[in-house]
Simulated scan of single mutants.
Amino acid sequence: MSDSWDDYADGWDSNSDVIEYSNMAFDSLCKFTSLDGLNVLDFGCGTGLLTEKIAHVASSVVAIDSSPKMIEVLKNKNIHNVNSLSFKISRKSINNNPIFESGFDLIVASSVCAFVPDYEETLSDLKLLLKEGGTFIQWDWKRSNGEDDFGFTNEIITDAYSKVGLSVVRVSEEFSLTSEKGTMKVIMGIAKNA
């Protein structure tokens, strides 16, 4: 695997697994909440497959990703109510960017939290961007029976939410994807900034 997400940008939107994951994440999001009129942050948006779906319903979307090439693909889609930024989130970067001043009703993070260097620190930073009563939703690979340390368990997510002051709404296995490599389960975590 490449060290840079930039290397995947050109073929990302045509990857059938990525498309299916995005579709299932969006379906589960719509089952949980209405997006009408919401200001949404798509954290780790990649090329914006989920961003596009959310933007058709939400009032506005700020889409951020650390990969400049992924963001370039998203910008080329010219979605009228999406502001996209190549951005690494931190307290300092949040405080220095006016696009974050008003906060967000909803923050989504699809298949990204397992890749951040410090999950709890990232959650803490994202919590700063949630309006009071706002919702954080993540989808990530479920850790398999302790065989490796990639992905999440319900306990890891629940504990992290509690540590940063988010109120746990639900953490559950939401869907799975099957490929030639086998079946991988996806866990969905939902929390409120109460």
Rank of each mutant, 00 (worst) to 15 (best):
M70C: 10
E120R: 12
E101H: 07
W139E: 00
G146M: 04
C30V: 14
G103F: 07
E147P: 00
S111H: 10
F100T: 09
I156T: 10
I79W: 05
N193E: 01
S14N: 12
M184Q: 08
W12F: 15
C30A: 12
D148P: 05
N154S: 12
V168D: 07
L85G: 08
S144P: 05
A25F: 14
S167K: 14
G44L: 08
D42V: 09
G46V: 11
T135G: 01
D140F: 02
P68L: 10
K75Q: 14
F100M: 08
I64E: 00
I89Q: 00
G165Y: 02
D3T: 09
D6N: 15
D42Y: 07
V61S: 05
I54N: 09
S84C: 11
A25S: 15
T153D: 05
R91Q: 08
D105R: 12
D17T: 14
E52G: 09
S84N: 08
L126Q: 08
G103C: 05
Y8E: 07
V164I: 06
L41E: 01
L166D: 02
K181T: 11
D105V: 08
S90A: 10
E132R: 14
D10T: 10
S86N: 14
N83C: 06
Y8P: 03
H56F: 05
G37T: 11
N145S: 13
L106Y: 05
I157P: 03
H80G: 04
I107G: 12
S59P: 01
W141D: 11
S90E: 01
M1D: 07
D17S: 13
F104K: 00
T33K: 14
I54L: 04
F32P: 02
N95C: 10
L35W: 06
E20S: 11
V186N: 03
F115Q: 13
I107Q: 06
G44H: 06
G189E: 10
L85W: 06
N15R: 00
A160H: 10
N78V: 05
S59R: 12
L50S: 09
S172E: 15
H80F: 04
V112C: 10
F136T: 07
A194D: 15
I137C: 01
S110T: 12
A9L: 06
K88W: 01
F115T: 07
K92F: 09
G46P: 11
V61R: 02
D125C: 15
L50N: 05
V73P: 03
D7R: 11
L130W: 04
T135M: 14
K142M: 00
N83R: 11
M24F: 11
V57T: 13
S124M: 06
A114L: 13
S93K: 02
F136M: 03
G48H: 03
K88L: 12
S102E: 13
K69E: 15
H56E: 15
Y161G: 03
D118E: 11
S16V: 11
S4N: 12
G151C: 04
